[in-house]
Each structure stands twice: as C-alpha cells, then as structure tokens.
Amino acid sequence: MIEYGSWLSFLYKLGVPEWIPDSLLVSFFIMICLCAAAFFMTRNLKVRKPGTAQIALEYIMQALMGFVDNLCPSEKKILRPVLGTTFLMILISNYIGIVPGFISPSSKVLFPATLALMAFVLIQVMGFRRKGLGYLMHFVGQPVWLAPLNIPIHVVGELARPISLTCRLYGNIYGEEMVICVLMYITLFVMGANVMPLRVIPLQLPMMLFGLFSGFIQAFIFTLLVGQYISMAVSHEE
C-alpha cells in the first residue's frame, strides 16, 4: 500500500523506524505545537492591559470550560483538562488535513482508536472512583432477577462505545477526505483531460469548506459523547 508522506516524512531518513506510521508523526507534531503554544502563551500574563494572545487564550479557555462544565458539573475538576485537551487535539488534527503537505491523523484508524480506548478507560475509572463497587450494580440493571439477561446486554453496550466512537470519527474524516480526493481526480483527469483551462477549477473547494464545519462538529460530538457517558457512569439514578 502506498503511503503518501507528509512534510514530516524526512524524519524517516533521520532514523525514525519505518513501522511508525506517518499519521503518528503528524499527531506528535500537533501535540508538540499545542504544548509549545500553551507554554509560550502563558508566559507573561497580565491582569492589566492583556495582550492579544492572552485575550484569545482566555476566550478559548472560557468557551471550553463552559462546554465541559455543562456536560458533567459534578466532575468538572478532572474533566476540564481531560476533555478540553481532547477537544483541542481532535479539532486541530481534523483541520490539519486541509493544510497542504499534512495528512489528518484522524483519517487513519489509529488515532481515533487510541482516543476512544482512552475514553473507555476513563469512563470505567470515573465510575469506580465515584461509586466504588456499586458501579457494578449498573451492569445488573433494575429488576435484579433479570440479571442474567441484563448483564450481557450492558457489557456489550459498554464495549460497543469505543468502537462506535472510533468508527464515527474515522469514518467522517476519512470519507470527507475521500470525497475531496475524488473531486480533485474529476477536475484533473475527467473534466480537464481534453480542455486544459478546466483543470484550474477547484471543484473540491466547497467540500473543503464543509470539512471545516464537519471537523468542528466531529470534535464537538466526540467530546460531548464522552462527557455524556461519564455523567451516565457517575450519576446515581439509573
């Protein structure tokens, strides 16, 4: 299978092993960029006369915090950093596919699967942390005598969550990229095969603009669903 490399594929010549996929390099690049941005934007914060960067940072932080606090108000101390960074990471990695020379990490299965596994572990840990062993009663269900029927259903439902989270993010981003690819192909080799001037018409442009929208929606949905699952695991009433 041919991998079309990103700008970071020069790292393979510098000694990065071949089995590390290209999308992983891009996701580490995004991670380092986010860390560096967070580090340098918080260096000289001022109460009086804040700079442009500080105002932008405060706006983003406030929006993220409001969003996460609404999801699960009882656990906001833990969920603020976790879900906020998850949202930012997914958003940037959805958008970086638009930049020429980069591939979107979320258009490969690896990145969404990692995030979904992390979310799965987080949901279970939060449930056990809040309710102790009583969290297992959530699997038994309400009429206790129906437990043999309820336990398999609940376990399967719990295991289906990371799979559906993975498939949703991966399918959306990959499908959108495939549509862009097909439209570019149509422009280059079908419409512009005989008529040269038609080659410059960017047929994929509306789809790329839609990609900006759907990338945001997908990051939003992923964070929203994880927060919802956690608040379901943490809440006392069934």
């Binding site: 949703r168 959306n172 499908g175």
Partner: peptide, 13 residues
Amino acid sequence: LIGLALIESLTIY
C-alpha cells in the same frame, strides 16, 4: 446533537 451523532453512526458503519 447527541441523537444526530448516534443516527449518523449507522451510515458511518
């Protein structure tokens, strides 16, 4: 939005 995501996931499957 949650409902839309759950409905949409069937098409994604």
